[in-house]
């Protein structure tokens, strides 16, 4: 019961550093990512006899990560408002189908069809959650299920799948050997999101609605407007992710984006965005996406099976949510 007071006196510098890290979790995350890279490198050398940290592997990692980066972008925005979108994976798949279905009618029409499907599903989600106040879990699970039902009709029928040229370039090409084409899109999206969240009125409102909807309302915000827009945006970003995926695989199938639902939530949570909303951002999510991608490579190296991956991703979400809740609750 008695503790020596001296033992509790921590030097000011250490305390300041602690506070700094708590306020800037991205720095810790980058550290985690670096460690993960090194571990993977060691395992790779041991098992295959080659290093993992090479330009080629880094480039591949980014190429593989970009679709998740897109889908997790939408998920980040939605989760900042305190919601969640469980339809991201099927929205991406539907967009991929739409693109390759319309691909024969020209590139623009193909891409537009994909994005329009994303926007449409997003709007339905937004109207359900924002205007009819359906719980986001239920709403997005519902649209996801409806989308799956409709898609499986099309997937059953043979039709000519033509992935537009620009989509496959964007999804699988590399410039100068090492620069993945989809990285260009990702960097653009990242810049828009990071700056947009900080320096636009809509960004402020996303945080406000997630932090305290009652207060946001009292400040004059009509919550439904913010919510409709955010789910619509999420739909579009998911569609972009779907296009990158189908550009990479060149062959849409019903399971195209399935793993990305859990991973998009995991990336956002790892990135430090609060699942209750109001705190976080896209830079954390980017690191979260990279961590998951490298972890995926490591698990592949270790011959992990799908169920083992699921267990690991699920555990990460649970453990990190608990840790973040502790850190932000007691400072």
């Amino acid at each position: 019961m008695t503790a020596a007071p001296e033992a509790l006196a921590r030097p000011g510098r250490l305390r300041a550093a602690q506070q700094f890290l708590a306020d800037n979790p991205v720095i810790v995350l980058v550290g985690v990512l670096a460690v993960l890279f090194i571990v993977t490198d060691i395992v790779n050398r041991r098992d295959i006899g080659e290093p993992f940290i090479t330009w080629n592997q880094l480039s591949t990692t980014l190429l593989v990560a970009a679709p998740l980066g897109m889908i997790a972008a939408g998920q980040t925005l939605v989760m900042l408002t305190g919601g969640i979108d469980l339809s991201v994976a099927l929205t991406a798949t539907a967009a991929a189908f739409a693109t390759s279905w319309q691909g024969g009618n020209g590139e623009v029409q193909g891409v537009a069809a994909g994005l329009a499907v994303g926007l449409g599903i997003g709007l339905v989600n937004g109207i359900g959650v924002g205007i009819f106040r359906v719980n986001p879990l239920i709403m997005t699970l519902g649209t996801s299920s409806v989308t799956f039902g409709l898609l499986s009709i099309y997937a059953g029928k043979p039709f000519e799948k033509i992935v537009p040229e620009i989509v496959s370039t964007l999804g699988s090409d590399r410039f100068f050997d090492y620069l993945p084409a989809n990285l260009l899109l990702w960097v653009a999206v990242a810049a828009i999101l990071i700056l947009g969240l900080r320096y636009t009125g809509y960004g402020r409102m996303l945080y406000a609605v997630g932090d305290n909807p009652v207060a946001a309302r009292l400040a004059g915000v009509r919550l439904w407007q913010v919510r409709v827009v955010v789910y619509a945006l999420c739909g579009v970003f998911s569609a972009l992710g779907g296009l990158l995926l189908v550009g990479f695989t060149a062959n849409p199938d019903l399971g195209l984006a399935t793993p990305y639902l859990l991973q998009s939530v995991a990336a956002v949570v790892i990135g430090g965005t609060s699942i209750f909303g109001g705190w976080g951002g896209y830079s954390g999510t980017i690191v979260g996406v990279l961590i998951l991608t490298v972890l995926g490579s490591l698990l592949t190296l270790l011959d992990a099976e799908e169920w083992q991956r699921q267990v690991i991703y699920g555990s990460i979400i649970i453990v990190l949510t608990a840790i973040y809740a502790r850190v932000s609750g007691t400072d």
């Binding site: 009125g201 809509y202 409102m205 305290n212 009292l218 400040a219 009509r222 109001g278």
Partner: peptide
């Protein structure tokens, strides 16, 4: 009821400006 507890003073004070 009126505060955004996790946001900065600046964002709290400026919030009503961006409601529309």
């Amino acid at each position: 009821l009126a505060l955004l507890p996790q946001r900065s003073v600046r964002e709290n004070v400026a919030a009503p400006h961006y409601s529309t």
